[in-house]
């Protein structure tokens, strides 16, 4: 399983804009490279990232071959209620990984 780092504030005030940072280890092999023997290295990238907040989708990104290895995605949302943020990365060769983070909204 790939290693992921998620930074979500543990606590926030209702209505506050919070920053969410995510980092996941992935080679992001472009599919355009060849080995020294001339064999094409098959594409192996993460193509979709989705974040849900208590089940509701709040952020989605489509990734392509030009994204560097270990993609770092950061975005903002409004802290509305206490609950769970779920992060899912999926891509080539049935790659799929889900991580969660909890937030307390006061």
């Amino acid at each position: 399983m790939a290693r992921a780092l998620i930074n979500v504030p543990a606590k926030a005030k209702r209505g506050e804009v919070i920053t969410i940072k995510t980092l996941i280890s992935h080679v992001m092999e472009t599919g355009f490279r060849h080995t020294t023997m001339g064999v094409r290295i098959p594409r192996d990238i993460i193509d979709t990232f989705v974040c849900t907040y208590n089940g509701e989708e709040i952020f989605r990104a489509t990734l392509h071959s030009a994204i560097a290895a270990n993609p770092f995605i950061t975005f903002h949302t409004v802290a509305t209620e206490s609950g769970t943020l779920t992060f899912t990365w999926s891509g080539d060769s049935q790659f799929s990984q889900t991580e969660t983070a909890n937030i307390v909204v006061e």
């Binding site: 290693r3 780092l5 998620i6 930074n7 940072k21 980092l23 996941i24 280890s25 270990n70 770092f72 950061t74």
Partner: peptide
């Protein structure tokens, strides 16, 4: 920032 530093993936 330890949550943005990709070197931390290796440390983990």
């Amino acid at each position: 920032d330890d949550t943005a530093n990709p070197g931390m993936l290796s440390v983990l």
